[in-house]
Design a protein around this nucleic acid. Structure first.
Length: 428
RNA sequence: GGAGAGAUGGCUGAGAGGCCGAAAGCGCCGGAUUGCUAAUCCGGUAAGGGUCGAAAGACUCUUCACGGGUUCGAAUCCCGUUCUCUCCGCCA
């Protein structure tokens, strides 16, 4: 959510930004509602002021003056209630409009409506060349007995899976490797709740209930299965005031991610590329409200994400995501796409991680502020998030890039200490 | 799941219908003083909305977990909710 005052003071810039982001919105409504709100506040203030004054006189008033004052007090109470009701309604409408307006955008983000408009920043690593037809992860997993998709469908439906044997060890190894790396980078690591309340989801920018929601919600409660630990890691500081000297806060969390994938039917449904549940290690940061600092933090997250895939020896490219494709809260967003030799005809890149600088868009709604000792007031912190590793996608890249002609798969060296072997062989 | 206790400013913690946006302490800021990794003294110090103002600021309203209610008037009384703590039960 953006600041109301800011929105009204920068209508043209906001209008252009909405245009670039592909968000249709009537900003005139916003201004009209803001004006209504202002009038109601002024009227209400005036009435409450008189109300205070009236009731304040009563203890000292003479017996003959009292009844009139009390009667006036009753009148005022009714008038105040009326105004407050109107203001509540206006505030609600205002909030609705405000929530649809996306964050402002980094000046360097490529302008465009779709994925194709994103810009490749760099390609890193050498794509493996095979002297055989590389298999996709489903076929590899089949011959090595690593994933049971049918069992997943049986117990929970399409989009669920069982990892088996070395795939289990690989999941744990990927998580451990990520955690080890993040601790070395100074992050406080944690495991997080897999459920969160509606208001936390909304604060982060998710729409927990509704037709096209990506979120599984639990009936008869205000709880939802989280789509990412970004929700819980960001939500953990809700309503807090943080001393400036304690920023930045660097946290990372292991969680499961649950996504309904509503509207994604028919898109890359094979295997474990698009699933309803996966394990992820998420990076999250709270910084001072200073673009220089949060942009720097953003670059650090990107660096960590890249180093992770470099260490696994998986080729990838970095995309600077176009305005129309980055979602409401982000000010700037990068994706890492790993090379997946089994995708498409001759291999394709597939998204494995992303990272966003959300500036104060999330913190405003979550009410996460910071305070500098000795200064008046508070400011909303900047929040950032990124994926250290999303296990299923990383697993796809790992299996497909490291497959051998004999059907075996090499384990990247950095993971071997956890997996315990250097090669997954058929029938082993 | 059952019983009880609680939720007050950045933190600790008083307050028990009007004199309370709220004592005191800590912390923080400014100053004085002595000098020596500090002590003492004095003063200041909540957040948010709105109006006016170029700004500094002035004025005003809201906020004592949240939502209702009683009342001319609620941190204070009543009801509901959430959360925390203690005890009991159950349980990995």
């Amino acid at each position: 959510m953006l600041d109301l005052q800011y929105l009204c003071d920068n209508l043209e810039a906001v209008r252009e930004n909405c245009e670039n982001r592909g968000v249709k919105i009537n900003l005139d409504d916003l201004v009209a509602l803001r004006d209504q709100r202002r009038e109601l506040i002024m009227k209400g203030d005036q009435l409450r002021s008189e109300q205070k004054e009236t009731s304040g006189k009563i203890p000292k008033a003479s017996a003959e003056d009292k009844p009139a004052l009390i009667a006036r007090g009753k009148e005022l109470r009714a008038e105040v209630a009326e105004i407050e009701q109107q203001q509540k309604e206006v505030d609600l409408k205002l909030r609705e409009v405000q929530n649809q307006i996306p964050n402002m955008t980094h000046p360097d983000s490529p302008v465009g409506r779709s994925e194709e408009d994103s810009v490749t920043v760099r390609e890193v690593g050498e794509k493996p060349s095979f002297d055989f037809k590389p298999k996709d992860h489903v076929d590899i997993a089949e011959s090595l007995d690593l994933i049971d998709l049918e069992a997943g469908s049986k117990v929970a439906g399409h989009g669920f899976y069982f990892l088996k044997n070395e795939a289990v060890l690989l999941e744990l190894a990927l998580v451990q490797f990520a955690i080890e790396k993040l601790r070395a980078e100074g992050f406080t690591v944690m495991t997080t709740p897999d459920l969160a309340r509606d208001d936390i989801l909304e604060g982060i920018g998710f729409n927990p209930r509704g037709e096209e929601s990506q979120i599984y919600s639990v009936e008869n409660t205000d709880l939802n299965l989280v789509g990412t630990a970004e929700i819980t890691l960001g939500g953990m500081k809700k309503d807090e005031v943080i001393d400036l000297e304690n920023l930045p806060i660097k946290v990372a969390g292991i969680s499961h991610c649950f996504r309904t994938e509503a509207g994604a039917h028919g898109r890359a449904t094979r295997g474990i590329y698009r699933v309803h549940q996966f394990t992820k290690v998420e990076i999250f940061g709270f910084t001072a409200p200073d673009l220089e600092l949060s942009n720097e933090f953003h670059q650090m997250i990107l660096r960590i994400e890249e180093e992770f895939f470099q260490a696994l020896n998986i080729p990838y490219r970095v995309l600077d995501i176009a305005t129309g494709d980055m979602g409401g809260p982000a000010y700037r967003k990068y994706d890492l796409e790993a090379w997946m030799p089994g995708r498409g005809e001759n291999g394709e890149y597939g998204e494995v991680t992303s990272c966003s600088n959300c500036t104060d868009y999330q913190s405003r709604r979550l009410n996460i502020r910071c305070k500098q000792p000795g200064t008046k007031g508070t400011q909303f912190v900047h929040t950032l998030n990124g994926t250290a590793v999303a296990v299923t996608r990383a697993l796809i890249a790992l299996l497909e890039n490291n497959q051998q002609a004999d059907g075996s798969v090499k384990i990247p060296e950095v993971l071997q200490k956890w997996v315990g072997i250097d090669l997954i062989k058929p029938g082993s």
